[in-house]
Simulated assay, not measured.
Amino acid sequence: MTGGAQAPGRAGRDRWWSRRFFEALEAGADAGRLERGRGYAAGGAVRDLKVSAGEVLARVQGSRARPYRVSLIRPRLEEDDWERLSAALAGQPLFRARLLAGELPPEVERVFELLGADLFPRGLDDLVATCSCPDWGHPCKHVAAALYVLAADLDDDPFLLLAWLGRERGEFLSGLRRHARPGGPDGAGEQAGAPFADTPHPAAPAPPALPEDPEAFWSAPDPPRLPEEPLRPEPALFTADPPEGAEALLDALEPLYTRLTGTEPPAGPSR
């Protein structure tokens, strides 16, 4: 196989997940039956394909007037499995960002494996595939046609794989966001090392008590009176005695100061 099927009027984009899906299913299958199923899919024989938790249903038009009913069943994951998967994927920012953007990173398959789950069926033997046609082939061309169209639908929406395992896209992404919040699934507490985690929020000041007298509600106390004279800082007083030897230093610097400024030096402390 070179890629997924092409449903009528749709181009097969051959994403890695749809290719990986059908590569797993075609192992050990009869190539001739798969080819006939591909022709059925390309001719628009598959109708009303619907993915739900644990089962894919479709109607496939065969040689008879009434379409055949195809069912593809695989085990659903338990709630605990989804919680562990969501926590593991949410803990990787790159995986989380790509999943929230509607993509399926290749590493997600490995995460499923490490947690003891299968993102893709390992083969046709992992599915309970039934068809109402009289052909007992494995698979019959109607089942093969439904698998090809399912692979094409996965090109558009890889989350159909998760829906088949028991988790709709919205519910899965909601769980991913919940596990990504600080404090874990319940959202309580702060993540270790989070900014401002130890900084207490300042308490808001208590509002003033309302007056008991209703008439006083519309009155306000007089503002405080301003001082008659503006406050000025007291001038700094130089009261310390000059250090020993200061007089000789000032006498030595006086001619230099006079030459540079052309003025007499300012009067310093009494010496």
Rank of each mutant, 00 (worst) to 15 (best):
G3V: 02
F21V: 00
A24D: 07
A27N: 04
A27L: 10
A31N: 05
G32L: 12
G32I: 08
L34E: 06
G37A: 00
R38V: 01
Y40C: 03
A42F: 10
A45M: 08
A45N: 07
K50Y: 12
V51K: 04
S52I: 06
A53T: 01
A53N: 05
G54F: 06
G54S: 00
E55I: 07
A58V: 02
V60Y: 02
Q61H: 06
G62M: 02
I73N: 07
P75H: 09
P75W: 09
R76D: 11
D81E: 13
S86T: 09
A88D: 11
L89T: 03
A90W: 13
A90Y: 10
Q92N: 15
P93M: 01
P93Q: 02
R96L: 15
R96P: 00
R98A: 06
R98I: 10
L100Q: 12
A101E: 07
G102V: 02
L104R: 05
E107K: 12
V108D: 04
V108E: 10
V111E: 15
F120C: 00
P121V: 02
G123W: 12
D125G: 11
D125S: 15
L127D: 04
L127H: 02
D135S: 09
W136Y: 14
W136Q: 12
A146L: 07
L147N: 04
L147P: 06
Y148V: 06
L150I: 03
A151G: 12
L154G: 04
L154K: 02
D156S: 14
D157R: 11
L162A: 03
A163P: 10
E168D: 15
F172W: 15
L176F: 05
A188R: 15
Q191T: 14
D198E: 11
T199I: 14
P200N: 03
H201K: 15
P208T: 05
A209W: 11
S219T: 04
D222H: 13
D222L: 12
D222I: 01
R225M: 14
E229I: 11
L231S: 09
L231I: 08
R232G: 03
A236R: 14
L237E: 00
T239K: 03
T239N: 02
D241Y: 13
P242S: 01
G245D: 00
E247K: 13
A248S: 05
D251T: 08
A252L: 11
E254V: 08
P255T: 03
Y257N: 01
T258H: 11
T263L: 13
E264H: 08
P269L: 08
